[in-house]
């Protein structure tokens, strides 16, 4: 194909199981609100998909402030899954989500398997919700799922139970990077019925105020996100892809430190089918559509017809 051919339009569509996205760029959970909060700053309908912040059965106030602090190239947060809870989410936020023209996914967190089951069952009945992302990996609340996420067999039990409760629903399982071997929980999730893997959530970390000798965050520790974690996240995606997702034919949503199209493309080459943007999107919402455009330009430049060809092409 001739690069100068102006009619050449690369195909950016991506399939997450049964759900087709018009392009691979998604919002990451917890950094874009429940629906149109970023809508004054970016046209969200131009993205591939939208993932809401984590919803729990009961509403949660969140952790003691301060809840975030900037570190070199990164953001530490200990928000603590502050959210309005399932009932208010359904009453107040779902009607807003219904106005979204792109596929919507709701992220779910919980303390117990029963809680996950109940929340997922209710949400799976709502037509606008095209899939559920199980947060088995929040580092900021004791019961926020990380105890599931760091233990492969617990991950498997949780995913299996939700799979049974919602047999028809697209299930994305969001993994924690705070493990020695990402392939163990990844494999457990897939064996238990996950349709898509999403990785990574934040890396546990902390910052200390040397004047007071205390931790900066009210919660003591937090989760690190932003550009600082990109190489770490990329490595985990590449491992999970090679060892689990590629052999099993499971798509990955790559997350962690993406700030520009080049970053997203690295994740795709490492094996991600789609790329979710968290921290960068809440600081600079317009970067989300710039990433879509940047990927399109890259494919044109490289004369790649479809983004799917690029997935996992790491040599």
């Amino acid at each position: 194909m001739n690069v100068m051919d102006r009619t050449f339009e690369p195909d950016l569509t991506v399939d997450l199981g049964s759900v087709r996205l018009s392009n691979p760029v998604m919002t990451a959970s917890g950094t874009c609100g429940y629906a149109f909060e970023l809508g004054d700053f970016v046209d969200l309908n131009r993205l591939g998909g939208f993932i809401t912040k984590s919803i729990t059965l009961e509403e949660r106030a969140g952790n003691i402030p301060p809840r975030t602090v900037e570190t070199t190239g990164g953001l530490l947060n200990s928000i603590g899954l502050a959210n309005v809870g399932l009932e208010r989410f359904i009453q107040e936020k779902v009607p807003l989500l219904e106005k979204m023209t792109i596929p919507v996914f709701v992220n779910v967190a919980g303390k117990t398997i029963e809680e996950y089951e109940e929340v997922c069952r209710r949400l799976s009945e709502i037509a606008v919700i095209r899939g559920l992302e199980l947060n088995v990996s929040c580092p900021n609340v004791k019961e926020g799922g990380i105890s599931f996420g760091i233990n492969a067999s617990a991950t498997g039990r949780l995913v299996g139970a939700v799979r049974k409760a919602c047999p028809e629903t697209l299930l994305i399982v969001k993994l924690t990077p705070n493990v020695t071997d990402i392939t163990a929980p990844a494999r457990a999730a897939v064996e238990a019925g996950a349709d898509v893997l999403s990785l990574v959530n934040t890396f546990t970390g902390m910052a200390i105020d040397i004047e007071t000798g205390k931790a900066v965050l009210g919660n003591g520790t937090g989760g690190l996100s932003g550009p600082a974690i990109k190489p770490l996240a990329l490595y985990q995606v590449q491992r999970a892809y090679q060892e689990v997702a590629s052999p099993e034919g499971i798509p990955i949503i790559g997350v962690g430190g993406i700030v520009c199209a080049e970053d997203a493309i690295e994740f795709i080459i490492a094996g991600a089918a789609a790329a979710a943007v968290g921290t960068a999107g809440m600081i600079n919402p317009s970067c989300l559509v710039k990433i879509v455009e940047g990927i399109r330009q890259y494919l044109k430049r490289q004369e790649i017809k479809t983004i799917k060809e690029l997935v996992g092409t790491l040599e």
Binding site: T31, L38, R67, V69, E70, L75, A82, I283
Partner: peptide, 16 residues
């Protein structure tokens, strides 16, 4: 004042 990350109501940093 509060320590803010997003400033636009999505991150829940600035709780009082």
């Amino acid at each position: 004042e509060a320590y803010m990350a997003c400033g636009i109501g999505v991150c829940q940093s600035c709780a009082v």
